[in-house]
Amino acid sequence: MDAPADTLVYFIAGYAVIFLIMGIYLASLIIRYRNLRQEEDTLKSLEENDR
């Protein structure tokens, strides 16, 4: 019986893409959340100063 095709490089590339895109999206969520929290804190302190 013939051996399976040698497709190791494509297997690695496939999973690299999967984890890379998932990681980038997760990082984007975390960065956007942090930035918004900072902005919220700044705006709240501005609001308190206005009072």
Partner: peptide, 9 residues
């Protein structure tokens, strides 16, 4: 058996 490791994608 035919496609090899890439099938695991």
């Amino acid at each position: 058996a035919v496609m090899g490791l890439v099938q695991k994608v």
